[in-house]
Amino acid sequence: KAKLLVLLYAFVATDADTICIGYHANNSTDTVDTILEKNVAVTHSVNLLEDSHNGKLCKLKGIAPLQLGKCNITGWLLGNPECDSLLPARSWSYIVETPNSENGACYPGDLIDYEELREQLSSVSSLERFEIFPKESSWPNHTFNGVTVSCSHRGKSSFYRNLLWLTKKGDSYPKLTNSYVNNKGKEVLVLWGVHHPSSSDEQQSLYSNGNAYVSVASSNYNRRFTPEIAARPKVRDQHGRMNYYWTLLEPGDTIIFEATGNLIAPWYAFALSRGFESGIITSNASMHECNTKCQTPQGAINSNLPFQNIHPVTIGECPKYVRSTKLRMVTGLRNIPSIQYRGLFGAIAGFIEGGWTGMIDGWYGYHHQNEQGSGYAADQKSTQNAINGITNKVNSVIEKMNTQFTAVGKEFNNLEKRMENLNKKVDDGFLDIWTYNAELLVLLENERTLDFHDLNVKNLYEKVKSQLKNNAKEIGNGCFEFYHKCDNECMESVRNGTYDYPKYSEESKLNR
């Protein structure tokens, strides 16, 4: 008799109507990190870190770059004969040098303040090359056809396309004075040089004057150069050297050249137009028929994500570079809930034993079982409120962090190594801060989002509990077992918050 009662009780308990509160689960393989956990499985997430590029040089917003090819900045601007293909260059979106560009200054020497000139050019998007001192009329008392084997072109001695090597005419090199007034309405880049012979005999042979000088002056520039005559090792078949100089001439300003020898005179100059998204990159990537809004030396990035880990040097509207390998923000729920887990921000989770793959029309909802059958029903209101809140948060985070910009490298010469090392340390410090901030932001927001979901499920549970009161009992896994019969209409009233407690209280009292 006792065995019969136990079996009867078990049958009745199993047959009781139930309603459970749960949440969506799926077959997603997404994982995120939080402050407290690593690799948390979630139903949905968004990636904030771009880690792919196309490996190509592309047009930037429809404008092609200027590819210097086998030449570098120095060779292009001075007019190395091997860089003749660059003479027609007028406009570009950015400038590309190759790491091993070999054609710079063909006659050995240095372009002074080269690093600063590169910085200036990094904001130039177009130029006009014009004859600042016409070759045939500007130097009537001097020979202007100086050439050298060091600047050979097609097997013949030649010289820079933008400079003139002035030497004596006959047996004399009379003092020369020439000036140019900038009437271009924009900055003009003027380049010139000073020749330093290897011996007094060479000085006399070329310029006749043993104590020659070169003077260059404008409103913002004033220097006097004296040739340094000295024996030097042979470089590119030359014992002599040429140093090259430049200045930016403001609109309306005048530049005056005065010399008694050794002047490498300007022939062509450049009127410059600035462009905020221009820059110089060093890259071996090849040019393709493609378009982008962000270019790196590795390749083009076409992404609206706020961060990238491809390269710190970028041109155009680019994500911020960070050292992170993963920045994924959760938008959905835990896919593998932890039992009795309390989140960092106070939300209680884990009283549900598992997510439901059968509930596909919402994030949170119900599963019921009664004599009429069983089924899932999503709670659309709480789901939609959660979707709206999380979507707004993700968009806000992306908008705040998605300050796209150009980031170019800084140039230092060989004598500025300590400054370069200090600059690298400062840049590394800023990069570490950006990386830390980005990672911390994602970790915190992921923790908040998961706790937010847990709290929403808990609130749904409490909503049902407050309606049923003692007409049902909690069975410990997020479910309630009714003390009365609850048909589909009754189940719907529980879900929509209109459950009639008094209607079922007498039946429940008897069954309790």
Rank of each mutant, 00 (worst) to 15 (best):
L5H: 14
V6N: 09
V6C: 13
L8C: 13
Y9P: 02
Y9A: 14
F11L: 14
A13Y: 10
A13M: 12
T14N: 05
D17Y: 10
T18Q: 15
T18N: 14
I19S: 09
I19H: 01
C20P: 10
H24C: 06
A25R: 00
S28A: 14
S28F: 03
D33H: 05
K38L: 04
N39F: 03
A41L: 01
V46P: 01
N47S: 14
L49N: 01
E50P: 00
E50H: 04
H53T: 15
K56D: 05
K56Y: 03
K56M: 12
K59L: 12
K59P: 00
G62S: 12
L66R: 05
L68D: 11
G69L: 13
K70Y: 01
I73S: 00
L77S: 15
E82V: 10
C83E: 05
D84G: 07
S91Q: 13
Y94V: 03
P99G: 14
P99V: 12
S101A: 13
S101C: 10
N103P: 00
G104L: 02
G104V: 04
Y107K: 05
D113R: 02
V124S: 12
V124P: 00
V124Y: 03
E128M: 14
I132L: 15
I132G: 04
I132Y: 09
F133T: 03
F133D: 05
F133M: 15
P134W: 01
V147Y: 06
S150R: 04
S150L: 15
C151F: 08
S152R: 13
G155L: 02
K156T: 15
K156P: 02
S157T: 15
S158I: 00
N162W: 07
N162Q: 07
W165K: 03
T167Q: 14
G170V: 06
Y173T: 06
L176P: 00
L176G: 01
Y180R: 00
Y180M: 09
N182P: 04
N182Y: 05
K184E: 10
L191D: 00
W192S: 05
H196V: 09
P197H: 13
S198D: 07
S198C: 07
S199R: 06
S199D: 06
E202K: 10
Q203D: 02
Q203E: 13
Q203H: 12
S208H: 10
N211W: 07
S215L: 10
S219R: 15
S219F: 14
S219Y: 09
R223H: 15
F225S: 09
I229G: 00
I229Y: 13
A231F: 15
K234Q: 08
V235M: 13
V235P: 01
R236Y: 10
R236N: 15
D237G: 12
Q238A: 10
G240T: 08
G240E: 12
R241D: 08
Y244C: 02
Y245N: 00
T247G: 00
L249A: 03
L249M: 10
G252C: 03
T254I: 07
G261P: 07
L263H: 01
S273A: 12
S273C: 00
G275L: 08
I281S: 05
I281L: 15
T282P: 00
